[in-house]
Design a protein around this nucleic acid. Structure first.
Lengths: 124, 124
DNA sequence: CAGCATCCACATGGATACTG
DNA sequence: CAGTATCCATGTGGATGCTG
């Protein structure tokens, strides 16, 4: 537990690198879409159906950002009606393990956090 | 790589659990403060000095949220001038490993992401 | 020292309507 | 089918000034 020197990975450059990446990942939909695409390639409407509650606008925006960052590939098939397939790139796939680590922590600790929060509110 | 069924940890309840936690963690300062406190307990001014660029307001807000969620403890010493010590709780400490996993991914892939982003902009 | 209060700028994201 | 366009509500966070 005394290995706090490893946190220099986080604090490193004042947190700039970590934050540059977090900014792209920690919005409302990104991780959900990445996790959904881990099944394999999907088209726009499939994603819209499988990610509950997302609007067309946010799905489009999030996919564009993922494409920009090279985490998701977008292939347009020249057909009528149009067919567009979205899939994770290798870089996108590599995000899954750390994302799972965080999700695991979230699931293990959400009860404790929620309880602590309610106790705090009650105190105030 | 065919173990995509594990991403149900992320998608599980439509991502609600993960997002409930991400919302508390993925703001501008939380992970930076947690990483800084991994060294041991620090007082307000020390934190303000060690986290470059943070304002008093955001330091206060972030610490209050961390205290609410039970990730950071706040102990006031009845002295003059006042002395307040902030430290990670066990729950707070347990966030470090998954945070490091994400930071590691960020550091490994930031160059590729940045390059992809520039290529994308150039294309447009 | 360790904050709280106030004001303000900007980004995120939701709802709705329209299109090649 | 796979988007785009527009409008708008809310949240996040920065600057500044004041206080027990």
């Amino acid at each position: 537990m005394a290995e706090y020197e490893h946190t220099c990975m986080i604090r490193g450059d004042g947190g700039r690198t970590l934050r540059a990446v977090l900014d792209r990942i920690c919005n409302k939909w990104t991780l959900l879409i990445v996790a959904t695409l881990d099944q394999g390639s999907l088209r726009f409407t499939d994603l819209h159906d499988q990610v509950p509650g997302i609007s067309q606008r946010m799905l489009t925006l999030t996919l564009r950002n993922l494409e920009r960052d090279g985490l998701v590939s977008r292939t347009v098939h020249a057909e009528v009606p149009p067919r567009v397939e979205y899939a994770l790139t290798p870089t996108g796939k590599s995000l899954i393990p750390p994302a799972l680590a965080l999700a695991g922590w979230a699931i293990e600790n959400v009860a404790h956090i929620e309880a602590s929060r309610e106790a705090y509110e009650a105190r105030t």
